[in-house]
């Protein structure tokens, strides 16, 4: 059983508009590395050169903000739902 990644709002374009992407990974960092192999530019949209998340990007594992967990080292289990959102400011 794999992990389900959902990119919401403008970030959906990163995964060609797909509602969700399924993959297998042990941590959020590993999942991003895996996704970056398939989706060109994903790492630049989500991460700094150092590998840490851009500060306007939030990732939730089963609705829990990974900043309040182990950040990118947050572990993933089969069936987990990972949601990725971006801050927006237009009015």
């Amino acid at each position: 059983m794999s992990v389900r990644f959902e990119f919401l709002g403008p970030l959906k374009a990163i995964v060609a508009g797909q509602e969700a992407v399924e993959l297998e990974a042990g941590t959020v960092a590993q999942a991003l590395e895996e996704l970056n192999k398939t989706y060109d530019g994903l790492a630049q949209r989500l991460q700094e050169e150092s590998g840490s998340l851009h500060r306007h990007i939030n990732i939730y594992v089963n609705e829990e903000d990974i900043r309040l967990k182990e950040n990118l080292q947050t572990t993933l289990a089969p069936g987990d739902v990972v949601t990725v959102i971006s801050a927006i400011a237009g009015g």
Partner: peptide, 18 residues
Amino acid sequence: CLFPEAPDPRYATTCVEA
């Protein structure tokens, strides 16, 4: 609590651009 700090301007997208 949602977003601790504003985006780095290099990565922020405005409605004018987007």
